[in-house]
Design a protein around this nucleic acid. Structure first.
Lengths: 252, 252
DNA sequence: AAGTGGTCTAGACCACCTA
DNA sequence: AGGTGGTCTAGACCACTTT
């Protein structure tokens, strides 16, 4: 067994796999097999560089990979340490939602409502408007393979000269936030995730049961002048958007 | 105005702020002010290095910062491009939950139940046991400033020699996953986030209303042999764990 | 004082893309 | 062929921590 180990403990410099990736992999395995143990120090950069006969920069790059994976922590003047599992540093991505939306030929958008109304409630506040300013309101159901995927409600400041209004009325725009194809008009955005449950109308539109638990994904986007320009939310049942994340050593 | 701009377009090499951070900031502002626009190419590494009189490595480091922020994308052979806003690349962290749990002097754990039972249902499946194998079941309420924060239910394989069982019965262990102080016994873990609503008992324990929407944070942890060792979940109302994230240019 | 990681230089060669 | 980013070297100096 130690033969197999020492074999993996050398870098193949002719390999197309970069040296720093190979090195990261070796160090990852040493963490996984408790050669380097939780809370303890790894050898110094110089020591690793010497033992693998690579430059300091290559070691640094390999350790950077492990830092990004949350496996180690580097402290100036002290060293590089194996991190303990830390649930709170993990984060939940929207990949499963995106993977459905990017399947474009099977996605269909059905407009339920597209009107100009007087602003009130949360949309008024989020968009920084004064009472009764006009806002564009759009409500859509997005379907995937003819099955309801999500109900989307959006509000935008009504400004006939703004491209945002055009975009709001376009069937594509909000899916484009995910398709990443037509969203140069926003500088930044903020998103919130909330637990919710479906009322009668929402359940009917999504083909789900009344009271069923769902995610509510709220969003607000700002234009390049820094003004809030679009506010709204998506309603999604959790089978349509699985949120999961991993911590610790998975890529051994 | 152009005077102010050109002033910021030089690096202060005597500053304690690293050159690559200053450079990233300048490039970020150029994206924010649409000097570099969505979808278009930035100057090449060599061009940036020349105009700021730094080495290629410093430019590379600065661009790496912007890549991590999701502002630009680098494509080998083509160049570095300003990314359009992309909701689906953002992710939700558990910082707000952690910030409460790490306020240790105000956190209190109240054990509701700690028994050994026969495995069944989801815990049996998650832990890879066969029917009626014994499992440790622990149920707790965690309070912050004497207010109920979360209800936690955990299952662990019953193995008298395993430190996990000891830990499960310890009032501290699962909060330690967050405190990051006593979790060297797990190699990896997986987490799921789900929308849920509180039943009568849960609502009473959490001082909330029956049917109120809540997050359910499920977790499973594996020991260094790769075996599932602990499964369970947290129930939390969204006021106790705000999940938000940002995309685009925020640090101008 | 010695050891650690953090920044930075000034090159080199390669893989990839576009023309 | 020429330009782009990706990897890598072999150093240098600095800031920080520990002894």
């Amino acid at each position: 067994m130690s033969g197999a180990l020492s074999q993996e403990d050398k870098l193949d410099k002719r390999s197309p796999v970069p040296a720093y990736v190979q090195l990261a992999q070796i160090l990852r395995q040493r963490i996984s097999s408790e050669i380097y143990t939780s809370g303890n120090r790894l050898p110094s950069e110089a020591a690793i560089a010497g033992s693998f006969k690579v430059s300091g920069m290559t070691v640094r790059q390999a350790l950077g990979v492990l830092v990004n994976e949350g496996l180690v922590e580097r402290i100036q003047g002290r060293g590089t340490f194996v991190k303990r599992l830390d649930v709170a540093t993990s984060c939940f991505g929207l990949d499963s939602f995106r993977s459905i939306l990017t399947d474009r030929e099977n996605v269909e958008v059905r407009i339920l409502k597209a009107t100009v109304e007087k602003a009130r409630g949360k949309a008024l506040e989020a968009l920084g408007l004064t009472a009764d300013d006009p806002v564009v309101v759009v409500e859509r159901v997005i379907l995937h393979r003819s099955q309801p995927l999500t109900l989307q409600v959006g509000f935008a400041v009504f400004d006939p000269e703004s491209p945002v209004v055009e975009n709001m009325l376009d069937t594509q725009v909000l899916t484009d936030l995910f398709f990443q194809e037509n969203c140069g008009s926003f500088k930044k955005g903020e998103l919130w995730l909330l637990p919710d449950s479906l009322d009668e109308r929402q359940a009917a539109l999504l083909g789900a049961e009344v009271g069923e638990n769902a995610f509510r994904l709220e969003h607000i986007f700002y234009d390049f002048a820094g003004r809030p320009a679009a506010y709204g939310w998506f309603l999604l049942t959790p089978d349509k958007m699985q949120l999961s994340t991993r911590v610790g050593v998975w890529n051994e």
